[in-house]
Write a protein that binds this DNA or RNA. Structure first.
Lengths: 227, 227
DNA sequence: ACCTGAACACCGTTCAAGT
DNA sequence: ACCTGAACACCGTTCAAGT
């Protein structure tokens, strides 16, 4: 047996906020929101639950920090000077959509992060482009707010869908299929529209619909503030 | 002492799904999401926690049902024949906004109710008006989806704000004030936009901003599908 | 300063037993 | 058929005690 080197640390790396957040993201990605517990997390980090509280305030802090790490990456892509503000907004929105698609738990974390850092990052990037679009100062906040709420709304719905699919053990298409079937059995007098779109539901592409919504808002901005 | 009448029931009314949901709404309104526990609920209904499971599947079922009761009321208002589809959509959106403002927990419940009854109710009412607007069949779903996600997004944010305000014991204006202060202290190079809107944040009216967002989407619909 | 891990005060849910 | 309430398997969080 090899002799222990002097002052060998208990872990390969000592505990730190960043290491905790990194481990949290891994657990969230593999086991979902319900899988992230202080016990599971401390086990993975080879420590006790109490140790985590030295580096993070509470679970909400942990979730927001994990969310922020993902959002920061998605918002880090620099704006290319040769693109229009409109294109940049679409790119930012799509970047967020894809990040949330890859990490569904970010969707629900974002919903609970109002006013916190991850939301401010998004507001800042959107806001700069809304200014560049020529929206007058008095309307800038409401405009950014509309874009933000739409994006966060879709994010939350996607997270919820993923959560349902996870707990039911079914994948997305099975989930959509079951939903479409339920809708097509609704009362024709009370729910004519829901019945009529049930079929489209099976084939639709969330990403395309998401972009269509962003496009609608951008058109609205253009119509409200013609240059 | 009055003689007990024969066959006196243990409770004034026997347990039922509706009574459970009604009591849940009262608890949610007075104590928030965290206040709704099976123990608090069974105590208020003078029964044991296990009894509730005879009438409801689980907590998610309970929350969705409570949410649906509120949404159903907000969506029940009949469309007046003399109004335009546009006005009806605004009225529906405002009705939901006010319902969620009065019952903040509905916001987060809605986010987790994708494809369930409360969401279908909203989709149906919006969908009929979107049809009336003359949106071509192929674009109806994406259009309704944009409106829905925006509304649910705002709802979720409002619920989160109310939740933060509740746990901090502060009211909405204190919360907004603290947020504005934090934002105004952000780094000027990294967050010029967030800093510039921080002041507006203190004075802004959520309801007005919400309507501005609905208006933006409606303008976008008009621009995308001119009649 | 940082970590340990038992203990506390809860949860949602189940289920044998009652009526 | 409907209800009871103890019991189960968890949570997040705290804190005296260690290094």
């Amino acid at each position: 047996m090899a002799k222990k080197s002097r002052a060998a640390p208990r872990r390969e790396e000592s505990l730190s906020r960043d290491r905790i957040i990194e481990a949290s993201i891994e657990i969230l990605d593999s086991s979902g929101e319900d899988g992230l517990t202080f016990r599971a997390l401390s086990e993975r980090l080879a420590t006790g639950p109490g140790a985590l509280y030295w580096h993070i305030a509470d679970k909400s802090d942990l979730l927001t920090a994990a969310c922020d790490a993902v959002v920061a990456r998605a918002m880090a892509a620099p704006a290319v000077a040769t693109t229009t503000p409109r294109e940049t907004i679409c790119a930012l929105a799509l970047g967020l959509f894809d990040a949330i698609d890859a990490h569904p738990w970010v969707g629900s974390a974002l919903t609970r992060a109002s006013g916190r850092l991850p939301i401010v990052r998004i507001i800042e990037r959107l806001g700069q482009q809304v200014c560049a679009l020529g929206v007058p100062r008095a309307h800038q906040w409401a405009t950014v707010s509309a874009l933000l709420h739409y994006i966060v709304g879709v994010a939350g719905q996607n997270a919820a869908n993923a959560q349902v699919a996870r707990t039911q053990g079914s994948d997305r298409s099975e989930f959509l299929d079951a939903m479409a079937t339920t809708w097509s059995h609704l009362d024709p007098d009370d729910y004519p529209f829901a019945r009529s779109v049930a079929a489209q539901l099976r084939a639709h592409d969330d990403r395309v619909d998401f972009l269509a919504g962003v496009d609608l808002i951008l058109r609205g901005i253009g119509a409200a503030h013609p240059r």
